[in-house]
């Protein structure tokens, strides 16, 4: 618990985006990252939903961390997560029904996201309000970033459109909007992300 004071908030925020990016680095939650990312709109809303749930769960867990019995902590985490997921899915059903009709199933699935439970267990249950919120923001923004990049790439190359608006007349590479192409896209972008990261790390190591 003594680490609490020494946490650098900026590093903690960037951790979720770069070093422990849920999709590109930890390769978790790949199911929605393939299933909903065949167009940009769905990808962005899915990312926003995860961001919201991640932040709210981290805040809630950190607030009640002192009253949770360690033996029953996992069921309690699950209850908190499913509560916030229900809130999110109801909000989306009310305000963006067209998106919800397509990604609704995967919104429900956020309950079972390894990354959200992992942050609750490893971070929020041991840290105070502010660091937990920043951590949740970082992880959520990292997820949103990954989903946005994947769905941008897939919709642009696969359908030749963005956010539903056509950019070119043809469908350049139809396979990318199909499930098989989802695996290709995630694999290629994961390799690209890690390649950039490696190069950046090499450069910063040289300059130090």
């Amino acid at each position: 618990m003594s680490v609490t004071n020494t946490i650098n908030l900026k590093d903690q925020f960037l951790n979720g985006i770069v070093k422990e990016n849920t999709i590109f680095k930890l390769a978790l939650s790949l199911c929605p990252s393939i299933a909903v990312t065949n167009n940009l709109k769905n990808g962005v809303f899915m990312g926003l939903a995860v961001l919201f749930v991640q932040v709210m769960v981290n805040i809630t867990i950190s607030l009640i961390r002192k009253v949770i019995q360690p033996k029953v902590r996992l069921p309690i985490f699950m209850l908190v997560i499913s509560g916030w997921v229900t809130v999110t899915s109801m909000l989306m059903a009310a305000f963006v029904p067209d998106v919800y009709a397509k990604v609704g199933l995967y919104i429900q699935l956020i309950v079972a996201f390894a990354s959200i439970l992992a942050r609750a267990e490893m971070f929020a249950s041991k840290n105070s309000f502010i660091p937990s919120m920043v951590d949740g923001l970082g992880m959520g923004v990292g997820f949103l970033f990954a989903l946005t990049v994947i769905s941008f790439f897939r919709e642009l190359v696969g359908k030749g459109s963005l956010w539903g608006f056509p950019i070119v007349n043809t469908k350049p590479l139809l396979i990318l909007v199909l499930p098989a192409g989802g695996f290709f896209a995630v694999g290629i972008l994961m390799a690209l992300f890690n390649w950039i990261d490696l190069r950046y790390m090499k450069k910063s190591a040289v300059s130090h």
Binding site: L173, L174, I175, L178, A180, G181
Partner: peptide, 8 residues
């Protein structure tokens, strides 16, 4: 297969 799926 890639070509057939991409340009049916």
């Amino acid at each position: 297969a890639f070509a057939l799926i991409s340009w049916p």
